[in-house]
């Protein structure tokens, strides 16, 4: 009955080629807004406290930023895949304790390998349980937090270990290369590696696909289980690298090292504009989030804001960031 109609005209493209707009031009506005906020904060900080812009302070700021940055990269993988990893700080503590104990016996290189293995195994176990038993990442990594924390306490006897391999502590924690601390190099290298994995590899594509719709990914032939497990192995390795840096820098392995770091990494990822529902965002946003959080605490420290108020300010900033993000989204829809 429709045959007598000419069907070529309306809405048809008439042989027009599909558009190839420049990549990511349609992305969300955070790409310009957050860098502007960072620059604004830098200028404001310099006006309030000229010492902020000194080389010394900036180097110090870069060092302070690294543990959070490395951990947030790992957290980003988990969040983009539609999950999250609450065990990061505990795995980091465990890796630190295991590493320092191994180094005392077998040397620094072996120690570092054992640390990395620790992260891989802990992340692998979490990932395995999440992927193969279809359990909630929240609960599994919460359990893993407890397990890793307990193991760290048992191995260390509940006290910090200060007998850190001196060569390793000196090299990772305090040496420079080209005027930039080794630990900053490590952090930057890992961030770049994370960005490469997410954007340039098949695995990275699958992380986004699984976070966006696990059932669509599975129906498209993606091995959802394997890739979910890999996600938590990546986040476990990030926690370990964070442990390597932190142990060297503080010259000690704490059984409960920086427990706030897990939640801060979550905060940084959200602050950068990565959706907690998964499937979107990227390492660039994570870096923005980390820089903003670290600058805030650096400036407040210099100005002498008390720790209580610092926590308050950071909390408010995170909540504001989430509201802003929603408003921006709504603007795009309408």
């Amino acid at each position: 009955m429709l045959n007598h109609l000419r069907l070529s005209r309306p809405h048809s493209s008439n042989g027009k080629k599909p558009t190839q707009r420049s990549r990511r031009s349609g992305r969300r506005g955070s790409d310009t807004m957050l860098p502007l906020i960072i620059i604004g904060m830098g200028v404001a900080a310099t006006l309030i406290e000229p010492k902020f812009a000194s080389i010394d302070n900036l180097t110090n700021l870069a060092r302070q930023m690294m543990p959070l940055l490395i951990m947030a990269v790992g957290q980003a993988f988990a969040i983009i895949s539609g999950g999250l990893d609450l065990s990061l700080a505990a795995v980091m503590s465990l890796a630190g304790v295991v590493g320092v104990l191994t180094m005392a016996e077998y040397g620094a290189a072996t120690g570092i390998v054992v640390m990395l293995l620790t992260g891989l195994v802990m992340g692998g176990v979490s990932g395995f349980v999440i992927a193969y038993f279809r359990t909630s990442p929240l609960v599994v990594t919460l359990g893993m937090l407890s397990v890793a924390q307990a193991l760290a306490l048992i191995l260390s006897g509940g006290v910090p270990i200060y007998t850190v391999h001196p060569g390793y502590a000196q090299f990772v924690g305090f040496n420079d290369w080209l005027g930039i601390p080794i630990m900053v190099w490590i952090g930057v290298l890992f961030t770049c590696l994370g960005a490469f994995l997410l954007r340039q590899t098949v695995f990275g594509r699958y992380v986004y696909a699984i976070g966006s719709s696990a059932s669509a990914a599975s129906k498209s032939g993606v091995n959802v289980r394997l890739n979910t497990m890999l996600v938590y192995m990546v986040s476990g390795v990030c926690a370990t690298v964070c442990g390597i840096v932190l142990t060297a820098w503080t010259g000690s392995a704490q059984p409960v090292a920086a427990p706030n770091l897990t939640l801060e990494s979550l905060a940084a990822v959200v602050l950068g504009g990565v959706a907690l529902t998964g499937g979107s965002g990227g390492i660039r946003q994570v870096v923005y989030g980390v820089v903003i959080l670290s600058m805030l605490s650096n400036v407040m420290n210099m100005v002498g804001v008390s720790a209580y108020y610092q926590t308050l300010v950071i909390g408010i900033v995170i909540i504001l960031a989430v509201i802003l993000d929603r408003l921006r989204d709504r603007g795009q829809e309408g």
């Binding site: 594509r205 699958y206 966006s212 719709s213 990914a217 129906k219 498209s220 890739n227």
Partner: peptide
């Protein structure tokens, strides 16, 4: 079987990016 957050291009090739290991390049 489309992942809503992925681009048109990524969706069209999803699951068929390459037969290699997960870490091979796109």
């Amino acid at each position: 079987s489309l992942a809503p957050d992925l681009s048109v291009r990524a969706n069209l090739r999803l699951g068929a990016e390459g037969s290699g290991h997960p870490f091979c390049r796109l």
